[in-house]
Amino acid sequence: MSSKTSKVALTRDDGKRLDGRADDELRPISIEAHVLNDADGSALVIWGKNKVVAGVFGPRECVPRHDQSPYRAVLRCRYNMAPFCSLEEHGRSGPSRRSQELSKVISEAFENVVIAESYPKTAIDVYIDILQSDGGTRCAALTAAAVALADAGIPMKDMLSAVAVGKVEGRLVLDLSKEEDNFGQSDNPMAFASRNGEVLLYQMDGLLTREEVKAGIEMGHKASREVLKLQLDALARVYEQPHETTVPLQLAPGQKFAPPQPA
């Protein structure tokens, strides 16, 4: 995924990144909660060009029975990419190995925050669909899933916010774009609990020094607080501006959904 030397120049002459951002700047993000009618909870996250929808069902009967736990609800998360999500070719159907790995680490992040003991023998199902991908989909997916779980009223100890840090041409940068992910020197996605900043997801590849690891965590945690604000704002707006349930997939990143005013 990352290489030692960039095949593509990732810094402009003015020192900014290819898309004009500063090193510690997030891409524009839109979050809308409660976008699906049937799901118990749902969310749309538009993060740069990424477009991700999450839907939650549960607590509900756990089938197959052998998946059930007598002590707690079983949390089942599935990350799945649509075949039309990429700029490049049409994707194959079925979960790739990458999707399966992501499903696992995402499930485990939420197992920490969801209070599952209240609902033994049930399942809480979280489905995250990547409808458009442009680097950093797993962070968008985690962020969307957290909002969908809160929207569903699933009791949680914490909210969870995710962001990726990376290294490009020797510098730590926040929220890698697709090119930076492909041609940069490290990709370091992470997710934080809202109450105390504990790390719920942490992965990296490439090469980082110890100082870079530390600085990366600080940069990531700070940015995750900004993401948290957007998540909470999305949830609040469900109640402050009730409107028809719809997926406003056409929103530009950073734009908020403006429901048509009732007559």
Partner: peptide, 29 residues
């Protein structure tokens, strides 16, 4: 019907029929 809500796909549309929501993505290869 919302036309071309996606940019990576060569064509796309989201159809709302009552509460039913169906997305279609078209890729050309």
């Amino acid at each position: 019907i919302v036309k071309n809500p996606l940019q990576n796909a060569e064509g796309s549309a989201l159809c709302h029929l009552g509460k039913t929501q169906v997305l279609c993505g078209v890729k050309v290869d």
